[in-house]
Structure formats: C-alpha cells, structure tokens
C-alpha cells in the first residue's frame, strides 16, 4: 500500500510517500511496525494523539482495519481556513 505523510510528519520521516508491504491488520499495528523500523519513524509517531489518519482519503481512527486500503495518510491536525 501507499503511505503518504504531510506537514511535520513528512519532515520528520524525510519523505512524502512510500510503498509498504505489511501484514498489519489495523492502523495502530502499522504504526508499531513503522516505529520499529528507524528512529525517524519513532520520532514522527511518538505521540499518536497528536496525529490524524486518513484511509483512502477519508478520516479514520487508529484502530480501523486496513485490509483492502490502498492509501494511508498520516498528518497533524488540520489547520485550514
């Protein structure tokens, strides 16, 4: 699946998007996998209460299942307007 990052999440991880193969069942499990990879992921996902997630461009919760999802986005709370 494609993972995309925005704002300071993108800056901390250092890339705007990447393709990831995972067996994670939920967003939370995917986050744990990513955190275990490298320090920059651990830094970006240190406090997930400060993050939002979208599954195929719809806002979702961290306990949401990710089976069949093609794009997951992680970003800080939005500041539009």
């Amino acid at each position: 699946m494609n993972i995309v990052y925005f704002a300071w999440v993108r800056e901390r991880i250092g890339i705007p998007q990447e393709q990831v193969e995972t067996n994670a069942q939920t967003v939370q499990e995917l986050v744990e996998e990513l955190k275990a990879r490298e320090e920059r992921y651990a830094a970006a996902f240190a406090d997930i209460s400060a993050l939002r997630v979208a599954l195929d461009q719809e806002l979702a919760e961290f306990d949401a299942p990710i089976a069949g999802v093609s794009e997951i986005a992680f970003f800080p709370p939005m500041t539009g307007g």
Binding site: F6, P76, M78, G80, G81
Partner: peptide, 13 residues
C-alpha cells in the same frame, strides 16, 4: 468556516 478549519486537509507553516 468551522469545518474547513479542522476537517479540510490543509497545514500552515
């Protein structure tokens, strides 16, 4: 305005 502020995916730097 309230919804665009918190639910439209924009980030300001």
């Amino acid at each position: 305005m309230d919804y665009l502020k918190s639910r439209a995916p924009f980030w300001k730097k």
